Simulated scan of single mutants.
Amino acid sequence: MTDVLARYLPEHAVAPLFELIKLYGVHLKIVNDRVTRHGDYHRDASGYHRITVNASLNQYRFLITLVHEIAHLAAFEKFGRNIKPHGDEWKLTFQRLMVPFIRPEIFPGHLLPLLARHFRNPKASSDTDATLSLALKQFDEKTDKNYIFEVPYGALFRIHNGKVFKKGAQRIKRFECQEISSGRVYLFNPNAEVELLP
């Protein structure tokens, strides 16, 4: 198992994460990329704790995602199944499990203050923290996609499911974009990746 983890995690995170996996009896499955989520946790009918994580994630996002999912398991075991999935109990558990990994031996120095800030009050997804998300994306494989904040006002772009939008004005943090086929307006995070159309 440590050989497999070593392909997806920073070197100094492998042993402590393997200990967490053993401690909580996790059945880890590394899966093909899913657009809507980086990972998930569920307890199946036979009582096994199953966690899936996308294989395409860079090593730092993979680490955060795996600890995020283990935190669900740990929070449910400690506080019971009636807690909110991303409520206070989960946040406290996620913080406690993640703190030992926020070190310069594991993360690049410039990510450490962003991680420290994010984990003061972790969100349901690190993608909702645009600053951290953009910093983590620099370690992804390069693509021909653009971020919404780079797309010019009024330009057309396509998202992963083929729908085409026209970029509109920025509201506080997100951008209003109109879907061409329906005329409906949707809000996009600035770090959403899209394909700019000619």
Rank of each mutant, 00 (worst) to 15 (best):
A15Q: 06
P16W: 02
E19V: 13
E19W: 04
L20S: 08
I21T: 06
I21A: 02
I21F: 04
K22M: 14
K22D: 12
L23E: 15
G25A: 12
V26P: 09
V26K: 07
V26N: 03
V26W: 09
H27N: 12
H27K: 13
L28D: 06
L28K: 07
K29N: 08
K29F: 05
K29A: 10
I30Q: 06
I30E: 05
I30M: 10
V31E: 14
D33M: 11
D33I: 09
D33L: 14
D33Q: 12
D33T: 14
R34C: 12
R34D: 07
R34S: 13
R34E: 11
V35D: 10
T36I: 06
T36G: 13
T36C: 08
R37Q: 08
H38D: 14
D40E: 12
D40H: 08
Y41P: 07
Y41V: 05
Y41G: 03
Y41W: 10
H42G: 02
H42F: 04
R43N: 03
D44L: 04
D44T: 05
D44Q: 05
D44I: 03
A45M: 06
S46M: 07
S46E: 08
S46V: 10
G47V: 03
Y48S: 12
Y48N: 15
H49R: 10
I51Q: 07
T52P: 10
N54I: 02
N54K: 02
N54R: 07
S56L: 03
S56I: 03
L57T: 06
N58E: 02
N58L: 00
N58P: 02
N58T: 01
Q59A: 01
Q59C: 01
Q59D: 06
Y60E: 05
Y60V: 04
R61Y: 00
F62C: 00
F62V: 00
L63I: 01
L63E: 01
L63Q: 00
L63Y: 00
I64V: 07
T65L: 04
L66K: 02
V67S: 13
V67A: 12
V67F: 11
H68M: 09
H68K: 11
E69G: 05
E69D: 04
I70P: 06
A71Y: 07
A71I: 03
H72M: 08
L73D: 03
A74M: 10
A74G: 10
A74S: 13
A75V: 04
F76R: 14
E77L: 15
E77K: 14
